[in-house]
Simulated assay, not measured.
Amino acid sequence: MSLTTELNEQMKTAMKAHDKVTLSVVRMLKAALQNAQIKAGHDLSADEEKAVLATELKQRKESLTEFENGGREDLVAGVKQEIAIVEQYLPAQLDEAAVTALVTKVIAETGATGKADFGKVMKTLMPQVKGQADGALVNRIVKAQLG
């Protein structure tokens, strides 16, 4: 089932259940996908759809951080709900231990020895974790391991 079809089904279910939060998030995701499709000028591939959803998830996580830092507890709960809904449509996220293991493997494969090899490691690693790990987490682990 395509992501658009899945979102349409979820939207119908949310309407029937009077679930306003889910309905709102699903509508935002559909709009983001449609905008990306218009911008690209063709139907989106599965990877392109995942990239759009990953961007939406990243935006919500950034909002969550800002709301927590600003003491806006009234908005934190809503954003957490939105994050949970968006995560349903993305592949399972890798935990820090799994990312660390991948980074170690890629460093060994590329023969990286120091900070000068950072770009080479990231270029090899990012396609492997695309949509499954936060780029900031990957960046931090690579920098730590390259010293």
Results as ranks from 00 to 15, higher is better:
K58L: 13
A144I: 14
I107A: 08
V76W: 00
I85V: 10
A108D: 14
L64M: 03
Q34H: 13
G78H: 02
T5Y: 12
K143T: 15
E48A: 05
I141Y: 11
Y89Q: 02
I85R: 09
L146H: 12
V142E: 01
K30H: 09
G135K: 07
E73A: 14
A144S: 15
A133P: 05
V26H: 08
L7T: 00
G135S: 08
H18V: 06
I38L: 11
I85D: 07
K120A: 09
M15K: 14
R72M: 04
K12E: 14
L94M: 14
Q10P: 07
I38C: 06
D43S: 08
S2L: 07
R72T: 02
Q59R: 12
T5M: 12
N35H: 09
L94N: 10
K20N: 07
Q81G: 05
V103T: 09
E6C: 07
L102T: 04
G78Y: 01
A14S: 13
L90Q: 09
V121N: 02
K80C: 04
A84M: 10
P127M: 01
K105Y: 09
G71R: 00
V121A: 03
L146A: 12
L125P: 02
G71M: 00
T100S: 15
G71V: 02
A17E: 15
L44F: 02
A98F: 04
K80T: 08
M1C: 11
A84I: 03
T65E: 05
T5C: 09
D19I: 08
A51P: 02
D19F: 13
M122I: 12
F118K: 13
I85G: 08
K20I: 10
V76Y: 00
G147N: 15
K105E: 15
V26N: 03
L64G: 00
T124D: 05
A101Q: 11
I38H: 09
E82V: 00
A40N: 09
T124K: 11
K20F: 13
G41V: 07
V138M: 03
A144E: 15
K39H: 10
N35T: 09
E96G: 15
A116L: 05
E68K: 07
N8R: 15
K105H: 14
E82S: 10
K16D: 13
V106S: 03
V25P: 01
L53D: 00
E109I: 06
Q128H: 00
